[in-house]
């Protein structure tokens, strides 16, 4: 199984989307001439991220977040100097300097910053190494990708790109059948919520745009964000596939049509 390419052609947001929806586990490497980014995922959630080799000691992270004083920082730096991150974390938690949630939250904030930096990368080679775990001694987090995806999707502003993603406004939208897509957990904007209210296979995108008073670009932008987040999908209007078009067959008699398809099947099997 290969999962590699260049961000120029397969964007970072598409990658996150893929990892999220396919619940992948492993390491994503993105390489540029000057720096490499590594992100580790577990079952579609972000566990770890680093850009280059810039490992900030946990003590420094706590200090920058204002959780410990300068004096504590100096003292603790000496105490934890020989420890890896995980050991330092356990020490700090058991000594009641912080609790586990605080550590997780701080690391997630840091990892999100890495992700945000990569959103701005327009090129870079990527490859996904399935199964790779987080480096020894580092503290893993368990971070949902959805909100990062939504954030990244909003950055896509190019009209041409939006038009190629959503070529026809005569199609309709429906919610995806993902049991784990908890709408409440998404940080959606007011515009996005307004569009959500009208998602129904009976409404075309055009009709939704009219209802919420958006122009073609605005509605495409919102639909694109919701698509990327895996919340909705494009369907033919009317929900179920409508009547098959008449011109498909040279005959309008259903029995003859069926016999025709069966003859085709029979013939192709014999090739």
């Amino acid at each position: 199984m290969t999962l590699k390419g260049n961000l120029k052609e397969f964007s970072f947001i598409q990658l996150l989307n893929l990892i999220n929806l396919a619940k992948k586990s492993g390491a994503l490497y993105i390489e540029r001439p000057d720096v490499t980014c590594r992100m580790i995922f577990r079952e579609g959630k972000l566990a770890f991220a680093e850009l280059g080799n810039e490992q900030l000691p946990l003590i420094t992270i706590l200090y920058e977040a204002g959780l410990i004083s300068t004096a504590q920082k100096e003292l603790l730096s000496i105490r934890t100097a020989a420890m890896n991150e995980k050991a330092a974390g356990i020490f700090l938690i058991s000594a009641n300097y912080v609790d586990q949630t605080q550590v997780s939250t701080l690391l997630m904030t840091r990892f999100s910053e890495v992700v945000r930096k990569i959103f701005a990368w327009e090129d870079g080679f990527f490859r996904f190494e399935a199964g790779e775990l987080i480096p020894d001694g580092r503290i893993p987090v368990h971070m949902d990708l959805e909100n990062l995806i939504v954030e990244g999707a909003r950055r896509l502003q190019e009209i041409e790109e939006l038009k190629s993603e959503i070529p026809s406004l005569n199609m309709a939208l429906k919610f995806t059948d993902r049991p784990d897509a908890e709408m409440r957990n998404f940080n959606l904007s007011v515009e996005e919520w307004r569009v959500i209210n009208y998602i129904d296979p009976k409404n075309t995108i055009q009709q939704i745009a009219a209802a919420v008073k958006m122009d073609e670009i605005q509605i495409r932008r919102v639909v694109y964000t919701l698509l990327q987040a895996g919340l909705i999908e494009i369907v033919r209007p009317g929900g179920m596939p409508l009547r098959l078009p008449e011109k498909m067959f040279p005959t309008q008699n259903p029995d003859e049509q069926k016999s025709l398809v069966n003859r085709l099947i029979h013939r192709i099997r014999s090739i």
Binding site: P241, R243, P245, M248
Partner: peptide
């Protein structure tokens, strides 16, 4: 795919 899907509701 989206473009063709919009032309006609064929499989």
């Amino acid at each position: 795919l989206e473009t063709f899907r919009a032309y006609a509701p064929t499989p």
